[in-house]
């Protein structure tokens, strides 16, 4: 592993994901600006209700902001620490954060990080450890289903042991490309549900989703999992 790593030119990047309350968007944006995170994107997501009753009454789910940031792995800890201080990830329900390791990046982007790496690493000692796990103990399950099935899907996932999930509305690009309707191109509506879970619960949850919402069902869902590390704000 170590000699392979040395073959990589430039810093190693990670994709850091924050899922927080929508009202806290500004707080996190400020943190990112202060630490000078160059690439971050925000999507609006929807939290999922903790019970069916609350969901039907309309007071179960709240709006979430999903941040995707690109940062060097050595900076990730600092970033998570600052964000944790600002948002209080140690409190329950304050939000979650995790990092997805990357397996490739277009080189020109790396140059930007190369330039700044020396400057920023100085004020950060890598001995500092946070209350987060660095090994790959957690996984992120992502299920993409047709519009309207996220509620049912979450109910099934919860039964199989999922703690919670976040839904993002996405558009599906079909193999044949979009349908044209005069001046506009029409795409499929899909919902992407992200569920952070421990390794042990991954398979039961994925099975539950696959069984009822798989490719052959009306939901026409696909489900996959990616490894994540540096997890904050979860008790699983």
């Amino acid at each position: 592993m170590s000699e392979k790593k040395s073959a990589v030119h430039g810093p190693v990047l990670k994709c850091l994901v924050f899922i927080i309350d929508w009202e806290k968007t500004k707080t996190l944006s400020d943190v990112l600006a202060r630490i000078n995170v160059r690439f971050h994107y925000i999507a609006k997501g929807k939290g999922t209700a903790s019970s069916e009753m609350l969901n039907v009454l309309g007071i179960g789910s709240s709006e979430k902001a999903v941040f995707f940031c690109l940062e060097q792995d050595i900076m990730a800890t600092l970033l998570l620490k600052e964000a944790s201080a600002a948002l209080g990830f140690y409190r329950p329900r304050a939000g979650i954060a995790f990092a997805i390791p990357l397996t490739g990046i277009n080189t020109p982007v790396l140059q930007i990080f190369k330039k700044s790496v020396m400057r920023e690493v100085k004020h950060f000692s890598d001995k500092e450890q946070l209350f987060m796990t660095s090994e790959l103990k957690y996984e992120l399950i992502i299920a993409v289903v047709n519009q309207g099935y996220s509620d049912e899907l979450m109910a099934a996932a919860r039964e199989a042991g999922a703690g919670g999930g976040t839904v993002i509305n996405v558009r599906g690009l079909m193999h044949e490309g979009p349908v044209k309707f005069f001046g506009i191109s029409v795409q499929e509506e899909r919902e992407a549900i992200m569920i952070l879970t421990s390794k042990e619960k991954k398979i039961p949850i994925m099975r539950a989703i696959g069984r009822d919402f798989g490719v052959n069902s009306k939901a026409a869902g696909i489900v996959y999992a990616v490894p994540v590390d540096s997890v904050l704000g979860v008790k699983l």
Binding site: K4, K5, A7, G104, N106, T107, V109, L110
Partner: peptide
């Protein structure tokens, strides 16, 4: 101004990642 990259815009850097091998449940 950082948006202007130097070099081959199509270049890709790869990071190694090791799989334990797939299992079927």
């Amino acid at each position: 101004p950082e948006k202007k990259f130097a070099g081959d815009p199509g270049a890709i850097t790869e990071y190694p990642f090791e799989y334990e091998g797939a299992r079927i449940y």
